[in-house]
């Protein structure tokens, strides 16, 4: 697990979007066992029941630990910014799951998306002064919005790339 490798600041984990829920679950279990953890979910990736089950596998104090995981969800890019702006610089670690999911929405033009991402990263800079911040970042689905992905990676103090899933035989597209 990545926790021993992280000393503080901003840690970005880049992985496949479908597996992000599992990554978030594993990370949150480790952090919740150590104390309070704040979660901001930008892509509705947090799986509440699997997380509760994973916690239960590690402890019988499930009620106590589930009180330690504080969740906030954003359903638009503007809400993601609002979440970050309203977050106090607390001493607890912050996990941001798939923060760019809503930035890829076709109804959001690239220019406001860039501005919002910049503002979000400014807020992350502020928050990482108080406690470690983990960003679980899904791979960018569209090349036109790749710049958003790169903006986040450039801000990382520690950057992990999860290995892409590959099977022996890759079936090509039909046409």
């Amino acid at each position: 697990m990545l926790l021993p490798s992280v000393s503080g600041g901003l840690c970005v984990v880049v992985g496949e979007r479908p597996s992000m829920g599992d990554t978030a679950t594993r990370l949150l279990v480790e952090l919740a066992l150590r104390g309070t953890v704040l979660v901001m979910d930008g892509g509705n990736r947090l799986q509440a029941y699997p997380l509760a089950r994973a916690l239960r596998q590690r402890t019988t104090r499930i009620h106590l630990l589930s009180q330690r995981v504080l969740v906030r969800r954003a359903f638009t890019a503007y809400q993601m910014l609002a979440l970050l702006e309203s977050a106090p610089g607390a001493a607890s670690p912050l996990v941001i799951v798939d923060p760019l999911a809503t930035f890829y929405d076709e109804t959001l033009a690239p220019a406001p998306a860039r501005w919002l991402a910049q503002r979000c990263l400014q807020e992350v800079e502020r928050l990482k002064q108080a406690a470690p911040v983990f960003i679980l970042l899904g791979r960018c689905p569209s090349p036109e919005r790749r710049f958003l992905h790169d903006m986040v990676c450039q801000k990382a103090d520690t950057l992990f790339f999860e290995a892409e899933e590959s099977s022996g035989a890759v079936q090509p597209p039909l046409f």
Binding site: H63, S66, Q67, V69, L70, R72, R73, Y78, L81, L83
Partner: peptide, 13 residues
């Protein structure tokens, strides 16, 4: 023009 109100903090429970 855009929705900005974010969800309040809540526990997993």
């Amino acid at each position: 023009a855009v929705k900005q109100q974010a969800e309040a903090s809540r526990t997993l429970d």
